[in-house]
Amino acid sequence: MTEPTRPLPNFEESDTAPFWEGTMDRQLRFQRCNDCDTVIFHPRRHCVGCLGHDLIWHDASGQGTVYSYSIVRQSYHPFFRQHLPYVVAWVDLDEGPRLLSNVVGIEDPSSDVHCGMAVRVEWEPHGDYAIPLFRPL
């Protein structure tokens, strides 16, 4: 029996592959339109702010704030049920994109996580790639 693992993305999926390639260098990437500066996230091939297709990948600083969060206390997923309770959060990166992730490195999720809390990316390696998690600053 192999241990259940975190559900990993398809690292080669065409729209998000550049994002996941960035994680090899521990870079958190997002797209911005070269014509109208709109931030595009999740990644796509077209701009949703104008009719352009000239999207440029940028590296985010990795710093952001918790927009909202929940402490998951019941899950039937074979991996996550072993890690209860855990924190899921929407994290607003300083550059604009909003990521769904986990807040890790906390003693007591009931008291140590707050909306508006400053966090920084922390990488969980999976082969050459890595999953972006967040830890309080």
Binding site: R6, P7, L8, P9, N10, E13, D15, T16, F19, H42, P43, S68, Y69, S70, V72, Q74, S75, H77, F79, F80, H83, Y86, V88, A89, W90, L99, L100, S101, N102, I131
Partner: peptide, 17 residues
């Protein structure tokens, strides 16, 4: 493909609201 790794349950999605 950018969200499924986080283990968000449907209830937790609403809980964040």
């Amino acid at each position: 493909n950018l969200e499924s790794f986080a283990g968000l349950t449907l209830i937790a999605n609403y809980a964040m609201c």
